[in-house]
Write a protein that binds this DNA or RNA. Structure first.
Length: 258
DNA sequence: ATGGCTGAGCTACTCAGA
C-alpha cells in the first residue's frame, strides 16, 4: 500500500499539478495539508473522477487538511485535539494494514514564527495538547501512522545551515524536544530510521533561489509506531513536483507499507 | 540575508507561510 503526504499550499491553485502527480504516483491514500479552502469549495468531484474519495477538514484562506483515498477510510474525525484558535489542523481515520487496525493521523503543525510571540506560544501549546492526546492514543491502539507538515526540523542534518535556524520556531531546541518526546512514546521517524546520514529536504522557500541552491529543510515526516515498523517497506522524498511550474513549496513523501 | 516569493480574499492591500 502506498501512502503519501504532501503540503500542497492551496488545493485549488495546485489542482493541475496535484492531478498529474496523483496519476503518476498512484497513491492508495494521499494526506494533504494547507488546502487553504472551506469544505464546500474542495474539488471533491474532480478527485472522484480520478478514483478517490475525499475526506476534508477545511477552513477559509488558511490551513486545512484532507485525505484522498481509493478505498473507504473509516471513523473519520476532526476533533482529535482541541485547537485553541479553532484552526483546521488534524484529521484522523482508520484503515486495515495487514489485519492490523491502523489509525491515520494527518497533521499540519503551527509554524510558530516569529519566536517569543503569541504565534510561538500557540505552537508550543498545540504540541503539548497533541503529545497529551498521543500518550492516550498509543495505549488504545499500538498501530498508528502520523504524517504531515510538522514544521519541525528534527536535527542539524535536516537543514542546509542549522546555525541560521537556532532561534527559529522550526529548529529551537525546546521545539525539537517536543518532537523527540513524541518519538519516545513509541514512534519512528521513518525517513531517518531508514537513511541514517542522508541529507534530503521536503521544503524549499519560493524566494532567493532556495530551490536552485538546495537551501531546504526536512519538516514533513512519517512517524510509524513501533508495532507497525516491520510493515514499513520504504520511504521516498519525491523532488519532482517541486521542480514543476507553479509548484508547492513542499514536495511529497511516499511511504510503502503492507 | 528580517529580504525575497506565493496564495487567499478581494479589487488595494494585508495576513500568513517557514
Amino acid at each position: 500500500m502506498k501512502i503519501i503526504s504532501w503540503n500542497v499550499n492551496s488545493v485549488r491553485a495546485r489542482i493541475e499539478n496535484i492531478l498529474q502527480y496523483v496519476k503518476d504516483a498512484n497513491p492508495d491514500i494521499l494526506f494533504l495539508q494547507e488546502i487553504k479552502t472551506q469544505n464546500e469549495n474542495f474539488p471533491s468531484e474532480t478527485f472522484t473522477k480520478s478514483g478517490y474519495n475525499s475526506y476534508v477538514f477545511g477552513q477559509k484562506s488558511y490551513n486545512g487538511v484532507a485525505f484522498l483515498s481509493k478505498s473507504k477510510i473509516e471513523n473519520i474525525k476532526t476533533d482529535f485535539i482541541k485547537d485553541r484558535l479553532n484552526q483546521s489542523r488534524v484529521i484522523t481515520g482508520e484503515i486495515m494494514i495487514n489485519k492490523k487496525k491502523t489509525k491515520l493521523i494527518n497533521v499540519y503543525v503551527p509554524n510558530g514564527n516569529p519566536v517569543d510571540t503569541e504565534k510561538y506560544k500557540y505552537k508550543k501549546d498545540w504540541l503539548n495538547s497533541f503529545l497529551i492526546k498521543m500518550k492516550k492514543e498509543i495505549q488504545l491502539n499500538p498501530n498508528i501512522i502520523i504524517s504531515g507538515d510538522f514544521n519541525i526540523i528534527p536535527e542539524e542534518i535536516d537543514v542546509y545551515d542549522f546555525k541560521r535556524y537556532e532561534d527559529d520556531a522550526l529548529f529551537r531546541l525546546e521545539i525539537r524536544k517536543k518532537f523527540r518526546e513524541l518519538i519516545n512514546l513509541g514512534f519512528n521517524d521513518l525517513y531517518r530510521h531508514l537513511n541514517k546520514s542522508k541529507k534530503e529536504y521536503t521544503f524549499w522557500d519560493y524566494f532567493a533561489g532556495s530551490w536552485q541552491k538546495n537551501y531546504g529543510m526536512r519538516i514533513d515526516h512519517f512517524l510509524i509506531s513501533n508495532n507497525l515498523l516491520n510493515n514499513a517497506e520504504s520511504i521516498n522524498i519525491n523532488k519532482k513536483p517541486r521542480s514543476k511550474v507553479k509548484p508547492s513549496d513542499h514536495t511529497p513523501i511516499e511511504l510503502e507499507i503492507s
